[in-house]
Design a protein around this nucleic acid. Structure first.
Lengths: 343, 343
DNA sequence: CTGTTAGCGCATTCAA
DNA sequence: TTGAATGCGCTAACAG
């Protein structure tokens, strides 16, 4: 069996309290300190965090619930989140919701039972309900990427609407007037991006044929089929805005298989990942989210909330809970050479 | 504060043991069952897994230590691992080693202190030492992707040597004789892939100019620079084997920027990810690892070990610990159209 | 089927 | 500075 502090007591002859004090950085005689260190080394003692957590009611673990773990966006966020948490002395417990709201709700409850000290959630669900158990348990929560209306929980994200607006504006500024979009509508994110696109077109008084707005599932297939359909139109668009990573993937596949050339026949701009532009030829101009910034801000926010929670613990009517609203970071456009100038 | 079983006792008038029995699926009077369920619902009770774990000395958590969380390979494995563990009633605690052996060692010790019931490790390190604490703590461990010599710990992986051999053989069979490789040498995986390549060339009695073997860091930059250098040679290769995802990325970037066309001027075959072939034009022929199989086998193996550990607990000299050796799965080649036939 | 009791490993009082 | 005692929330005997 693993060694416990009792074993250390046997070896050193000191009391449990003294050993505990050592483990928690208290002051003791150098002599005793050395004895304990020697014993720890010999016994390969490791603190039992379950027992410690039971006493302190703090686990030093932060739960991270992601809507889907198997994509670059999520992984990159996880990387940065993990780094921040680690340097603050916390570990991350990552739960994949597999794009399933029920699993998401279970994940939340699971993490509560694990007594995590805080949670980051990149939600599947649009409804706020699934967060209630965490709020009731008084576990600080910070959302990322997708805000949840009516949850009253702060979210760190980019301004999808504004960024999409600027992306389409870039197409416009290059002279394009026949502008199409391939996007998704299941998540808030997708809706916001569509809104941004429509807004620009409206502001510029461009009439959009309904067959130019390909809003469907968030999937490679949707991107693939939509691109095929757009290129088959009698009057195909000269420029296309692609709403997310998977759609870009599918759309570029379809384009590659067609006789159309980018940017000669059709110009492209996409929302999301940078890795894509390394592979495609020509490089696609992209709206890139500041993933590291997003993660660091979310981590900072959460750690801050956790601190406050611990200090204000009992009384005090929480005067400063003034519902701060979402934290919105700017996305930047990274230019490739996928947009042709049109006269 | 969160509700405990004592609160349930207050409400129901039943004893702690009865409530505990309910929580663990024991039989009790329907009447009492209903009472408890009502109380749980009202109080929003959630089991405190720390307390439970302290008693049972099982956490229902499996630790997963990955060399780098921010890549598709890792994420995909995490996804499949997570699904398997979840359906077996376990959660995954994921630790990123950030490609750093020291962090890796800390992760192992951290998970031990969290009393995880088992571990999956995709190691950074080549040396076995970092696994010792886990072995001493008698925590079942299964490695993935990269075996660690002398650790005595089983590893689930593909046969990199054999797969690379077949990849290069495909180039050979298409008639190529001027074959180059861009690969990495920091990890076992990279070394094995290089060996497979060299072996085929040797078997076919092909002399390899040293400038054809670009072995360097596992990075996009290395792929990029190496491709540039290869194309600048007086006698450039007609076919190139690319050893991993990052290298493919860089190499394809460089190729796209050059005047060379694939497969007309240079044929390509790569080791790793499938996503790449969706984007590049033409589609690159790839050696694809059976990620789902790898994950499922590793999960099964680990869960099996955990079961055995719990049952054989005390005595029995573990007769069947016969060092089963690594579990090696076949990779498959997914053909694109990046290889030209040469006469 | 239910209740009583003890103890998991540790931190934390309070005395000494 | 150190030690003895108490309890965190729960499960696991055992007795009823």
């Amino acid at each position: 069996m693993a060694a416990t502090i009792k074993d250390i007591r046997e070896v050193t002859g000191l009391s449990l309290a003294t050993i505990s004090k050592y483990l928690n950085g208290g002051n003791l005689l150098p002599e005793n300190k050395a004895k304990i260190e020697k014993a720890i080394d010999e016994l390969h003692y490791e603190v039992n965090e379950m027992a410690r957590g039971l006493v302190t009611s703090r686990s030093k673990v932060i739960g991270v619930v992601v809507f889907d773990i198997a994509n670059v966006f999520t992984c990159t966020l996880l990387k940065y989140l993990g780094e921040r948490f680690r340097s603050a002395g916390y570990a991350a417990m990552i739960c994949d919701s597999q794009n399933n709201e029920q699993i998401e709700a279970e994940n939340i409850r699971f993490l509560i039972s694990k007594k995590v000290d805080g949670m980051i959630v990149i939600p599947v669900g649009l409804t706020a309900e699934f967060l209630n158990p965490a709020l009731r348990a008084e576990i600080p929560v910070v959302l990322m990427d997708r805000s949840v209306d009516g949850s009253g929980v702060q979210c760190v994200k980019v301004d999808n609407r504004e960024s999409s607006y600027r992306a389409v504006e870039m197409l416009y500024d290059y002279g394009h007037r026949k502008i199409a979009m391939i996007g998704s509508d299941i998540e808030v994110t997708g809706k916001e991006r569509e809104q941004g696109c429509r807004q620009l077109l409206k502001d510029k008084k461009i009439e959009v044929p309904p067959e130019y707005m390909k809003i469907g599932r968030h999937s490679i297939e949707h991107g693939y089929k939509s691109m095929q359909e757009l290129l088959k139109l009698e009057e195909p668009p000269t420029a296309i805005f692609m709403g997310n990573f998977e759609i870009i993937l599918g759309a570029v596949m379809a384009l590659n298989e067609s006789s159309f050339q980018c940017p000669h026949d059709v110009s492209l701009i996409g929302f999301d990942d940078l890795i894509i532009s390394n592979l495609s030829n020509p490089r696609i101009t992209l709206v890139v989210q500041p993933l590291q910034d997003l993660a660091e801000n979310a981590a900072k926010l959460l750690l801050g909330k956790m601190d406050k929670d611990r200090n204000s613990s009992d009384e005090e009517p929480e005067e400063d809970t003034q519902m701060p609203g979402d934290l919105i970071l700017p996305a930047r456009i990274v230019e490739g050479n996928s947009i042709a100038r049109v006269e």
